[in-house]
Nucleic acid binder design. Structure first.
Lengths: 341, 341
DNA sequence: TTGTAGGCGTTATCAG
DNA sequence: CTGATAACGCCTACAA
């Protein structure tokens, strides 16, 4: 039998003040003496008082909920090493401020409605992930007058504050590393076309190759999935064109599937082909050979996004947040090309 | 500038009835004529009325929120292929009923408080995952009088309704498959000790081995992580005892890390050692060799859990739900033992 | 510095 | 069948 929840009036009568005083005291607002504040706080803890979200939301016309709408096929989530720690990061920060995250997984058609519904339901703000080229969500949320933070630099800024990270430098590092090993024919297997971080990695790959005086044209379209990575890898070796001696994958999942595909095509890694990944998933170090890849910090992304969003929701002026850059982690999947430097 | 949200009073004055009538009409309750109900509904749609969750929650003393508390180090989430689709499954069902999921990630000490806080904050019910032996959460939630559903059969039922799935049969299938191939020295690498599904898989392994007349004692403790799987694998081959010719891992992550560890120890798979996993993660088919493993359906777990919880929250009498059994998927990582059958 | 009195949007309890 | 009216818990003018 759960004891009935204490209200601020219970605290008030326990301390011997009015409920208004309790409200002031608990919300760090002026209008109450330090002594009273202290006693009120003490009583609140003693009684196990927890603010009633519904009541607060009702009066403030704004809930303590932050939204994250994921336009994805749920099946694809299992393979995404980024998503869960991202949620955890967001949640950690939010929880520290008495807020919570509500998640929605929708298909393409339902996306727009989801934002509208959630805004009407009082969601205080949104975290936007999986940014797309010409992403409409920025303008939807502007129209809805709802605060939002983008994970990654939105393509058309759309006035959205963003948490940024320069993944371009890490791709350039990968290319430089391969070039230093003596590779000249380097390919890139991309993520899903139309996503901002896909394009930014392609662009980074191309400009790094060009800078090194190499052909930047060996780009094969992938989709961030194992199947896609394996397929793109096979295509790279069945074009009749000279084969690449190294492949820069847009994520680890594709790289590891590519590793298997190369193996089945009789190419050894790194003997015949060197490969690099992106994300540094827990299994990357346990590939055979261990995967040279780029670190990522989904937890950090989540924390930063939540912090930024909270500031916006609280009406503070904010500037974009930049995360510390990813690092290239050298492991066994990269080595000199077969014809040796 | 978002237009102010219409309230039931706006509807009431538009239709020319009282707000109570509107409430009745909108909630399909008796006490209002069919004609009035129709006009009220029409007006609600016209005005774009959406129920105010906060107000409803305040008066009904119960929110539309369902909680999931994860006692995990956030870093470990990246490697968990089960978690994200589970959330998606829960969310899908919840969203269909106007409810949402709120997630909390806590450490050991904060777990109990998290449930208390969330219940006090009006969370309508909980999904319990990562069940432990002698799990205290069942009794915590009973004390809090909060509905909850367990994912997996709680050890001491604790009166908790559960979504069950017999993973024991799949482990038995794995053992049978290996025995049929001629293996006699089969080892099991376990999950985190003290978790219900770890123990149930150990138990299933032992009884299958015993049933086959084989030594059920070759059990090495793991922890569901890549590091743990690799470590346990190494230990299996450094005891001085006769080496196993096959290993049944409690999940794919450990199996794939074990594969790498075996490789480094100069053992070929399946030539020297056969291995099986559990979960059928997307990468399992892309291991070298492809991993023989057991399917899992995190999305299905999530959906079932949410459905069951909704029934409980709505006060229906419920019985445990049983999911269709996992299947053993035969791939390349299992074969005859080196000394042949 | 403190207390009183609304009101937020909805549901539930009563009278009519 | 309908319509006032009082909660629900909290916040915030305003008055004391």
């Amino acid at each position: 039998m759960a004891a009935k929840r204490p209200t601020i009036r219970d605290i008030a009568s326990a301390v011997g003040v009015s409920s208004a005083a309790v409200s002031y005291a608990l919300n760090d607002r002026p209008g109450v003496s330090e002594e009273t504040r202290r006693r009120v706080r003490q009583a609140a803890t003693d009684l196990g008082w927890v603010p009633n979200r519904a009541a607060r939301a009702l009066v403030s016309q704004q809930s303590s909920l932050v939204g994250l709408v994921l336009r994805r096929r749920p099946e694809t989530l299992a393979a995404d090493p980024f998503f869960a720690p991202l949620l955890a990061g967001i949640e950690q920060v939010l929880a520290g401020h008495g807020r919570s995250l509500v998640l929605r997984v929708v298909d393409d058609e339902a996306e727009r409605d989801a934002y509208h519904e959630m805004v009407k339901a009082g969601i205080a703000g949104f975290v936007l992930t999986d940014l797309r080229v010409d992403d409409p969500r920025g303008s939807w949320l502007r129209d809805l007058a709802s605060p939002a933070v983008a994970l990654g630099r939105p393509d058309q800024a759309a006035g959205l504050p963003a948490v940024e990270l320069d993944d371009r430098a890490a791709i350039a590092d990968s290319v430089d590393h391969l070039v230093a090993l003596g590779h000249a024919r380097i390919a890139h297997v991309t993520g899903i076309p139309g996503m901002v971080h896909t394009d930014s990695r392609i662009e980074a790959f191309r400009s790094a190759m060009t800078r090194c005086g190499l052909d930047p044209g060996l780009v094969e379209v992938g989709d961030f999935t194992a199947d896609g990575g394996a397929g793109a890898t096979k295509r790279l070796f069945s074009t009749g064109r000279p084969e690449p001696t190294a492949i820069v994958y847009a994520n680890d999942l594709m790289a590891m599937a590519g590793l298997a595909a190369l193996d089945r095509m009789g190419r050894s890694v790194p003997g015949d082909v060197s490969i690099t990944g992106f994300d540094d998933v827990p299994l990357a170090a346990y590939a055979s050979p261990p995967l040279t890849t780029v670190t990522s910090d989904a937890l950090g992304w989540g924390r930063a996004a939540a912090r930024l969003l909270l500031e916006i929701v609280d009406g503070d002026d904010v500037t974009d947040l930049t995360l510390p850059p990813s690092r290239l982690v050298l492991r066994g999947s990269t080595g000199p090309p077969p014809d040796g430097p």
